[in-house]
Design a protein around this nucleic acid. Structure first.
Length: 734
DNA sequence: GACCTGCTGCGGCGTG
């Protein structure tokens, strides 16, 4: 410690705590962050790899700052995306703060109201809170908020990257802004994050309009050794029996499970099969193998529909010291929660993003001297004369290889920061009315849409149109003096606790066995009594579906299929599609393929050459033609809407777009494309004129039509990339 | 053919 300058900036009592912990040095991120944070005079972003001591990097200097005052009655608000993270941090901070006489207050939906009342009586120390609970504080105690937060010295945002580009992130920006307005000063913001691709983007998120003033600590990822293999498996073609009903269960997952069983047993690992359904399938297959061998089960399921109890069991199994538990999971185990280092990570099929894959890989090889291990598994159908283009081009294997390759090179998708999230503007306006007991329209516009406000892109005319629209739905009313208040409908919505979250959630059935909650299933699931399902790694018989109570009663049984979960598929970035093409052209040679996966790539290259996809953009496949753009989904979807506007039926199809021929010939479609290439791309309100079903966010239903279309387009479409591609390639289609 | 996150106030009742 003697050579550390930052160590001596810390309060003496904190230095003593560090000594008693036996830390022999500060981590690089802490060393760099302490001098920037200790004066509480600027915004700071600390980006560092997982487990690099980011929380301490922020809290040690922040607590030092509080201790400089006598009495130490200052306040730090720490915002976390997860309740579990708040509980983790509470345990760690309490040990430190007990010696300092600084109270630490966890505050989220599971915390008793008596504890919250105690904080409100003497609001000092460290408040650990979720964005939703902060929203509730502003709605319900808005009149007193300036007093409660009077001594606020910092707002610390943990897992900053998880907020960027979402409704929840927009809400968080608005909450921070409203706190600054209530206090009449700029409260320093500290953002903690896993390494970010673009620090400037993150800075502009943390302090909209003033990103340049944010100080940065980027301590980078320790470039450890990574061992990678991608294994291919082929699902044989089996002709369908005449009396067979419904889709046949595939046989290949059992082989994949057999391989995993051989290489994963006896250690801690994470397996990511991309969906809750596949988590159920693989957990069941793997534990069946344990049973056949007469050994205790060591594979544990973890996903968002499982009850808290079952998830906690899995987390506890991973943390146990014997180290022989593997979790089969969705991205519930991608973020934050401390489960300790794992030996390896398995990825079944392409992940939803390279950024997610990188985060998953970061869970492995954290012990010194040990490499991170990634095993990719790719299952392809056998090729027959009837196989479609995706099978012939081995799209899933090529995409997995492309994404693994990009992750190894350190590339990952930048967050999508241009989403307008006007849904959240509706929420924030309603919340502001509650906080202040009514607002004037001009005041609301200035505070939500003004120069450094979260919705600064919204014009005055649009805001006025929004107000009129909200009034027509009785969400708000305007008094004669001009004051905006809640309408009857608005009153009811704001007074229910479901108001505080900025994001929408699916309605779900509870699953109960013998009085024990197992978890939830989406409402769209069609289930009848007598049916058998896989859930929580076991097989159950449905005894009763109680519609009114939204509850499914089950008992344990043998044999059953994994349940269906519904949803949309992930969005692929253009860089991934470009890399896929580089692999297909032979410009990039993935060096991590097993013989079967290498054969898949060889077959894909042959198909790519046979179809002449280097020159051809339109491929006839019977009732439809595939337009190969090799663009990301945002550009492809913009082209889809352009085609729809010309009366064609088009849908996203992996690296391209499927266009129904209908009355038209391939030449006719090519002519439409050539024509589109010469036209200017219309504004989103025209491009999406005929589009139905574009509600995506929680309060989208309350937006005027034009604003809804604009909000959807800002979030999902890249018209510029689409138009650039059309200008360059659509002529060659003809 | 995807995944994840979150939630108050208050009345009524029983117990120490």
């Amino acid at each position: 410690m003697s050579d550390s300058k930052s160590f001596f900036l810390l309060d003496e009592r904190i230095r003593r705590f560090i000594w008693t912990q036996g830390w022999d040095q500060l981590r690089p991120a802490q060393e760099a962050a302490i001098p920037l944070i200790v004066e509480a005079d600027r915004d700071v972003i600390v980006a560092a790899a997982t487990a690099a001591g980011k929380t301490e990097a922020a809290m040690l200097p922040a607590l030092t700052h509080l201790l400089r005052r006598e009495p130490a009655d200052g306040l730090v608000v720490y915002v976390s995306p997860l309740k579990a993270l708040i509980n983790d941090q509470f345990g760690r901070l309490e040990a430190l703060c007990a010696d300092l006489d600084i109270p630490v207050w966890p505050w989220h939906g599971d915390i008793a109201s008596s504890q919250k009342t105690r904080f409100l009586k003497a609001p000092r120390g460290v408040l650990l809170i979720t964005p939703e609970s902060l929203e509730a504080l502003l709605v319900n105690r808005g009149h007193a908020i300036a007093g409660t937060l009077a001594r606020l010295a910092y707002v610390v945002i943990d897992e900053l990257h998880s907020f960027i580009g979402s409704e929840r992130g927009k809400q968080l920006q608005s909450l921070m802004h409203r706190i600054d307005l209530a206090l009449g000063r700029r409260v320093p913001r500290v953002g903690l994050s896993a390494t970010l691709g673009d620090m400037n983007m993150a800075a502009d998120f943390l302090r909209p309009g003033c990103g340049r003033g944010v100080a940065m600590v980027n301590s980078g990822r320790g470039a450890g050794e990574v061992k990678v293999i991608v294994k291919g498996y082929e699902e044989p073609f089996v002709p369908r029996e005449g009396d067979a009903r419904g889709p046949r269960e595939p046989s290949t997952p059992a082989q994949v499970a057999q391989h995993m069983y051989g290489v994963l047993r006896g250690a801690n690992n994470l397996v990511f099969p991309n969906s809750r359904r596949e988590v159920e399938r693989y957990t069941h297959l793997l534990n069946s193998l344990c049973k056949a061998d007469g050994v205790p089960p060591e594979f544990w399921p973890h996903h968002g529909s499982l009850s808290k109890e079952i998830r906690t069991d899995t987390e506890a199994a991973l943390k146990r010291t014997d180290g022989v538990a593997t979790a089969i999971c969705t991205n519930t185990l991608e973020l934050g929660i401390d489960i300790g280092p794992v030996k390896s990570v398995a990825q079944v099929g392409p992940p939803s993003s390279v950024a997610g894959l990188r985060q998953r890989l970061g869970r492995s090889g954290r012990r010194k001297g040990e490499p991170a291990i990634l095993r990719g598994y790719s299952i392809e159908d056998a090729v027959t004369v009837e196989s479609d283009l995706d099978v012939r081009l081995r799209v899933s294997t090529v995409q997995l290889a492309a994404m693994v390759g990009l992750a190894l090179e350190g590339w990952f998708e930048p967050p999508v920061t241009n989403g307008a999230h006007l849904s959240t503007l509706v929420q924030q306006l309603m919340s502001l009315i509650a906080q202040r007991g009514g607002v004037m329209a001009a005041e609301a516009y200035r505070d939500l849409c003004g120069p450094q406000a979260p919705f600064s892109g919204v014009g005055k005319a649009d805001f006025a149109a929004l107000l009129r629209h909200l009034a027509s739905k009785d969400l708000i009313v305007q008094e004669e003096a001009g004051l905006l208040l809640h309408g009857g409908v608005g009153e009811r919505i704001v007074n229910h606790y479901s108001f505080y979250a900025a994001f929408a959630a699916e309605e779900e059935y509870r699953l109960i066995s013998g009085g024990r909650p197992l978890g939830t299933l989406p409402l769209s699931q069609a289930l009848v009594a007598g049916q058998r399902i896989l859930f929580a790694g076991r097989t159950w018989r449905v005894d009763e579906v109680a519609e009114k109570e939204r509850t499914i009663y089950v008992t344990q049984t043998k044999g059953g299929a994994p349940p269906l979960f519904t949803g949309e598929s992930g969005r692929v970035h253009t860089r991934v599609r470009q890399r896929m093409r580089e692999i297909l052209r032979g410009e990039v040679e993935p060096g991590f393929l097993d013989p079967t996966a290498a054969r898949f790539v060889a077959e894909a290259r042959r198909a790519y050459a046979d179809l002449q996809l280097d020159q051809v953009v339109l491929v006839d496949s019977g009732a439809q033609v595939r337009l190969f753009t090799w663009l990301g989904d945002a550009a492809n979807e913009a082209i889809v809407f352009l085609l729809l506007s010309r009366g064609l039926t088009a849908t996203l199809a992996g690296p391209g777009i499927d266009i129904q021929k209908g009355e038209m010939s391939e030449q006719g479609i090519a002519a439409v494309l050539a024509d589109l290439a010469g036209c200017e791309i219309p504004q989103p309100e025209q491009l999406l004129a005929g589009a139905a079903n574009i509600d995506r966010e929680k309060w989208d239903w309350a937006l005027p039509d034009v604003m809804l279309r604009r909000s959807y387009a800002s979030l999902r479409l890249d018209p510029n990339e689409a138009s650039a591609w059309l200008a360059e390639h659509a002529k060659s289609a003809a």
